[in-house]
């Protein structure tokens, strides 16, 4: 089911897995900022973060022997796609949920 990591790869695993999550957040934040401020220059940086995430994931996959087993390979693919799309989804949710804000002119005071 799993092939345990080898000693020489410990550091790579810790480092890249931290990078995956942090770059994921950075990507999401830059993406949101770029849209929020209407600043197009931030968008390439957002995708640059994702590129970093992609590279980190691949290094992680290699170091943790994930590509040697179909199930874990699918997880890697899933993470790559999921972390690519999640910031889009989060952004749309932010906008979508706040769309109602302007409608709510009179607060519900029915108590």
């Amino acid at each position: 089911m799993i092939e345990p990591a080898s000693l020489g790869n410990f550091f790579t695993i810790f480092f890249t897995s931290a990078m995956v999550i942090m770059l994921g957040a950075l990507y999401a934040l830059l993406f949101a900022f770029s849209r929020l401020k209407g600043d197009k220059r931030l968008m390439p940086l957002a995708y640059l973060s994702y590129a970093g995430l992609l590279i980190s994931t691949l290094f992680l996959a290699d170091a943790a022997n994930l590509l040697k087993h179909p199930f874990w390979t699918v997880i890697v693919a899933f993470m790559l796609v999921g972390y690519l799309l999640a910031p889009h989804a989060i952004w749309h949710l932010c906008v979508g949920t706040h769309a109602a804000e302007h409608v709510e002119v009179e607060p519900i005071k029915n108590y």
Partner: peptide, 9 residues
């Protein structure tokens, strides 16, 4: 826009 998207409701 008075109606928000269903997926954001």
């Amino acid at each position: 826009m008075a109606t928000s998207q269903w997926w954001a409701s």
